[in-house]
Amino acid sequence: MSKDPQASAPHDGAPGDVVVLSQDDHTLVILYGDVDVRVSDELEYAGRFSIDAGRLTVLDVRHVTMMDSVGVSFVVRMAAGLRSAGTELLLQGPSRRVSELISLVGATELTRWLPDEALLSAQVEQS
């Protein structure tokens, strides 16, 4: 997992990756590739970092190719933890796969989707 603000996308052939960026007014978590048990430690770190920061978190799922129950559980736990901390989880996408999974488990009320191709900074300022 990358914690460096200068980090880039994972190398070709990587099963998945989690990038955590601390911005001025929010935390940005970017998921890449297959989000499954192989990245569970990275997901745990990203969730804990975001919740401990106690501020708005944007989860970018535009580059997710597959998400299993580990990934869905991560989204639900992070959204609930952020809500308990008095803030929220915004999903940057869209990713139909992730959206369907969130809906399927009945967790749509825990998150809010940013509009397609919205400028992240403009959306965060409006929140």
Rank of each mutant, 00 (worst) to 15 (best):
S2Y: 07
D4C: 05
P5G: 05
P5F: 04
Q6E: 15
Q6P: 01
A7H: 10
A7C: 15
S8L: 15
P10R: 08
P10Q: 06
H11K: 14
H11E: 13
G13M: 14
G13F: 13
G13Y: 12
A14R: 06
A14S: 11
G16W: 04
G16T: 07
D17W: 06
V19R: 14
V20D: 00
V20S: 00
V20N: 00
L21K: 12
L21G: 05
D24C: 05
T27D: 13
V29R: 03
V29K: 03
I30T: 14
L31R: 06
L31D: 04
Y32G: 07
Y32E: 07
D34H: 08
V35H: 03
D36T: 09
R38P: 01
S40V: 11
S40A: 15
S40L: 04
D41T: 14
E42N: 10
E42P: 04
L43S: 02
L43R: 02
E44W: 02
Y45C: 02
A46S: 08
A46P: 08
S50F: 05
I51S: 12
I51N: 12
D52P: 00
A53D: 11
A53H: 11
G54S: 01
G54D: 01
L56N: 01
D60F: 03
D60I: 02
V61L: 01
R62M: 04
R62W: 01
V64T: 03
V64Y: 02
M66R: 15
M67H: 05
D68I: 00
S69Y: 03
V70L: 02
V72R: 04
S73A: 14
S73V: 07
S73Y: 08
S73P: 05
S73M: 11
S73D: 15
F74W: 10
F74E: 05
F74M: 05
V75S: 06
V75E: 06
V76W: 00
R77M: 05
R77I: 01
R77C: 03
R77V: 02
M78H: 00
A79K: 00
A80Y: 03
A80D: 08
G81P: 08
L82S: 03
R83M: 04
A85C: 08
A85G: 09
G86P: 02
T87M: 01
E88V: 11
L89T: 13
L90I: 13
G93W: 07
S95Q: 08
R96D: 12
R96E: 15
R96K: 12
R96C: 10
R97W: 10
R97A: 15
E100P: 12
E100Q: 15
I102E: 04
I102G: 04
L104E: 13
L104M: 14
V105N: 07
V105E: 05
G106T: 06
G106M: 08
A107L: 04
T108Q: 08
E109S: 10
E109N: 07
T111M: 02
L114R: 11
L114N: 09
P115E: 09
D116G: 00
E117R: 13
L119V: 13
L120T: 12
L120F: 10
L120I: 12
L120S: 09
A122Y: 07
A122H: 09
Q123G: 09
Q123N: 10
V124F: 14
E125W: 13
Q126L: 12
S127C: 09
S127D: 03
